[in-house]
Design a protein around this nucleic acid. Structure first.
Length: 404
DNA sequence: CTCGGCATCCTAT
DNA sequence: CTAACGATAGGATGCCGAG
């Protein structure tokens, strides 16, 4: 356990790098990485945000997560490209395939991040650091984008190390380097220490990871509770026993949210959105051959507060109309018509057995299809064919920059 | 007292 | 004019009521 060697590989500015590579391969001469640019939502939508930015864009003070409109104010020449998840999936697969040649024990942590367990490979690869360089150079030369590699004895330290100086770098974070390389960092840089925890720690005059590593355990316990206190203390000391696991876990929930361009106050619009969302969620349940017992509606009022209301049903379902009906009922129970800017729908309490059981009843499948068709017809007749398409384009962050 | 259900909070990409 | 800004998911926690 103590002799493990773990790599964490992280694509530098993933979405933007991938867009740049794709455009160059199509004969474009402009490399998006060399000009102010970003991947973001539709600039005409007030709600779209910057997902990934180029280094020149960063020099204008553009930060990940800010609105595209604000970014354009800072830099009117900013090139904003829409996310293309099909492309990202291909790029992700390509770089993970290369890494997979070096070890079978790999864990996809996200679309652009991978943990690799390189323990016990000294015979094949005597020098892990040299190997890390080789992998990163291969990806750069064969695929055209750069990655950072963190090399350490556990996942946490490997992850922290890959976040050090970028791009195109290999960093180590071995036990004897923790004090020098990790302890001087602000607490908020520690993986698992988000905004809320960081604020509380700073209020306690714990400002760096090193100070957290030496903090009084009882005080941490009182503020954060057992689990979090334990995690924070261990993490700050570079202790992490979690394993690199390559099985894909089954999803525990399926959810969709839509932020609306304008605040919504009427049930018609809400119902329309809920129906589209129910169809998406139900479709994903069916695609995975599972059903859900619990349906929850989520809405965000114009003061940015999130509210939720859910209920566990007697039976699990994957039928659009059933999910829709429950969602409408739930919404009616809590929403009094205050202006809302987001409406979401979540299916949880997943029943992996329900689908199999269903095949025992011959009628069930037909009934399901009928209900589904009914629901689809309902939208199409009322709002036109396009209304069944996904509303809005989701943009999630490929990179996390807490500190810029 | 414990457990299930529910709402909210926190963190991550 | 105090904050501003998305989508999706997992885990923790606190409360409440039932057994």
């Amino acid at each position: 356990m103590n002799d493990r060697i773990i790599f964490h590989v992280d694509v530098n500015s993933a979405f933007l790098s991938w867009e740049a590579v794709n455009r160059l391969s199509k004969g474009e001469t402009l490399d998006l990485r060399n000009v102010p640019s970003c991947v973001g939502g539709d600039p005409n939508r007030r709600t779209s945000i910057v997902s990934t930015k180029s280094i020149p864009a960063k020099k204008y003070g553009i930060v990940t997560g800010e609105s595209v409109a604000a970014a354009l104010r800072k830099c009117p020449d900013l090139i904003v490209v829409k996310p293309d998840f099909q492309l990202y999936k291909k790029m992700s697969y390509a770089f993970k395939s290369i890494l997979n040649e070096y070890t079978p024990l790999m864990q996809s942590f996200s679309i652009d991040e991978v943990f690799m367990d390189m323990s016990g490979m000294q015979r094949i690869y005597p020098d892990p650091i040299k190997l890390a360089h080789e992998m990163k150079d291969r990806i750069r030369d064969e695929l055209g984008f750069t990655v950072n590699v963190g090399v350490a004895k556990n996942k946490l330290c490997a992850k922290m190390a890959s976040d050090f100086e970028k791009p195109d770098k290999v960093h180590t974070l071995f036990p004897d380097e923790i004090a020098d390389k990790m302890w001087p960092l602000p607490v908020g840089e520690l993986f698992g220490c988000g905004q809320s925890t960081a604020k509380k720690l700073i209020d306690m005059n714990i400002n760096t990871i090193g100070e957290l590593a030496k903090a009084d355990g009882r005080i941490l316990y009182n503020t954060f509770g057992e689990k979090a206190a334990h995690y924070l203390y261990n993490a700050a000391n570079g202790i992490d026993d979690s394993l690199v696991v390559n099985e894909e876990r089954e999803a525990k929930s399926y959810s969709v949210e839509n932020t609306t361009e304008d605040d919504v106050t009427d049930f018609d619009t809400v119902n329309h959105l809920l129906l589209a969302e129910a169809d998406i969620v139900a479709g994903r349940l069916r695609a995975d051959e599972v059903k859900a017992f619990t349906i929850t509606v989520i809405y965000r009022t114009s003061d940015m507060k999130r509210h939720s209301h859910g209920r566990k049903m007697e039976y699990s379902t994957d039928i659009t109309s059933e999910i829709y009906d429950m969602a409408v009922r739930l919404m009616k129970e809590v929403w009094k018509g205050e202006p809302i800017r987001l409406i979401g729908l979540s299916a949880s309490d997943i029943d992996t057995d329900g689908f199999r059981q269903m095949s025992l009843f011959g009628e069930e499948a037909k009934e399901k299809q009928r209900n589904l068709d009914k629901a689809l017809d309902k939208i199409r007749s009322k709002y036109g064919n396009n209304s069944v398409m996904r509303a809005g384009i989701g943009v999630f962050r490929a990179d996390r920059r807490k500190n810029d």
